[in-house]
Nucleic acid binder design. Structure first.
Length: 297
DNA sequence: CTTGTCAAAGGGGCTT
DNA sequence: AAGCCCCTTTGACAAG
C-alpha cells in the first residue's frame, strides 16, 4: 500500500462503518459538497472559526508509531482539535475506551493526526471520564449518607423523647405515691437485715429511709416495667438507677416479710443471682437477685 | 491578570 | 527493550 493516497472521507466511511458509526457521522462529517480531505468552516468549542483542514491526505508510510515524524500542517504549538475530530474521537471512545494499535492507526489515518496524538487524546479522555465518574460516585455516596443521617437523627430524637417521657412518668408516679403514704414512717430495719454485711447494710439503710415512703408493690411493678424494657445488665445505669435502688430494698423487704429465711442468710441472697431472666416463675425475685447483686461489695 | 480547559510531554510502573 | 497506561506537569488559549 506504499504510495497509495488515502482520502479522509473514504477512510472515515470505512472506519465508521466498521465501528457502526457511519449513520451518526454522515451529517457533520460528510456534508454535501464537502470535498474529500477538503476544509470545513469548523468552529472550535468556543464558536471560533478554525479554518483547518479536516482531513489531510495521508501517505500510508507516513503513519506509524514513530512520533518523531514531522507534522507540517501543524506548527510546533499546541493546537486544539477541530470539532469534527473531537466528535469522531468521542464516538470512538463511546464504543471502546481502550485503543488497540490497529484502531489507533485507523483513526489517525482518518483524522489526519499522528497516532501519538490519538493515543494522547484517549489517555486524556479516560482521565476526564475517571474524574466524572468520581464526581458521580461522590454524589451517590453523599445522597446515601444524607438519607442515613436523616434516619439516624430522627431515631435519636425519638429515643430522647421516649427517655424524657419515661423520666417524667416515673417522677409523677413517685410523687403520687409519696402523697398517699405520708403517714407511713418505719422506725428501724427489720431484725434479720441487721445481720447483713456492713456495706450492704449501709446501702440498705440508706435506701430504707427513701423507700419506706413508697407503697412497695406499686413501685415494684413500675420498676418491673422499666426492667422489662431494658437489658438487666444496663438497667442499673442511667435514668432507672434511682428507681432500681429504691426497689431493691422494697423487694428485699417484701421478701423478708413473706419468708424470713430467704434473706436473713447471705448465702441465700447470693443464691438468688442464679435465677435466670427467662425464668418467669421467679418474677420479682429475679429483680431482687439482680439488685442485691449490684449492692454486694 | 487570573482562571479553567485542553493537548501534549515526561516519568514511573507494568506487561509481553 | 518496546509499548502501553496512569499520573502529573507544562504550555497555549479563551473567557471573565
Amino acid at each position: 500500500m506504499v504510495g497509495k493516497r488515502h482520502h479522509g472521507s473514504s477512510n472515515m466511511a470505512v472506519l465508521l462503518q466498521s465501528q457502526g458509526m457511519y449513520k451518526e457521522f454522515s451529517g457533520p462529517l460528510f456534508a454535501p459538497g464537502t470535498p474529500s480531505g477538503g476544509s470545513l468552516d469548523l468552529k472550535d468549542g468556543h464558536g471560533n472559526s478554525l479554518e483547518r483542514p479536516l482531513f489531510r491526505p495521508v501517505e500510508l508510510d507516513e503513519i506509524g508509531d514513530d512520533d518523531s515524524g514531522e507534522y507540517p500542517h501543524q506548527p510546533d504549538k499546541k493546537r486544539r482539535l477541530t470539532t469534527c475530530q473531537v466528535q469522531f474521537l468521542e464516538k470512538s471512545f463511546e464504543l471502546e475506551n481502550k485503543l488497540e494499535p490497529e484502531r489507533k492507526l485507523q483513526i489517525a489515518k482518518v483524522l489526519g493526526l499522528k497516532p501519538r496524538q490519538i493515543a494522547v487524546w484517549f489517555q486524556n479522555r479516560r482521565a476526564r471520564w475517571k474524574t466524572k465518574q468520581i464526581e458521580k460516585d461522590y454524589e451517590s455516596l453523599k445522597s446515601s449518607y444524607d438519607a442515613l443521617k436523616m434516619d439516624h437523627d430522627s431515631l435519636v430524637k425519638e429515643k430522647e423523647d421516649l427517655k424524657a417521657e419515661v423520666l417524667s412518668l416515673t417522677k409523677r408516679l413517685l410523687k403520687e405515691e409519696n402523697g398517699s403514704l405520708e403517714s407511713f414512717e418505719p422506725k428501724r430495719l427489720p431484725d434479720n437485715l441487721q445481720n447483713l454485711d456492713s456495706t450492704l447494710a449501709f446501702e440498705v439503710k440508706k435506701l430504707h429511709g427513701q423507700t419506706m415512703l413508697c407503697k412497695q408493690e406499686d413501685i415494684s411493678s413500675a420498676n418491673s416495667a422499666i426492667l422489662d424494657s431494658e437489658s438487666p445488665h444496663h438497667a442499673h445505669e442511667g435514668d432507672c438507677s434511682m428507681l432500681m435502688e429504691l426497689n431493691s430494698y422494697s423487694n428485699a423487704f417484701r421478701l423478708h416479710h413473706s419468708d424470713h429465711s430467704q434473706i436473713g442468710d447471705v448465702d441465700d441472697v447470693k443464691h438468688c443471682n442464679f435465677l435466670s431472666p427467662e425464668d418467669t416463675s421467679c418474677g420479682s425475685e429475679f429483680h431482687v437477685a439482680e439488685q442485691v447483686f449490684w449492692l454486694w461489695p
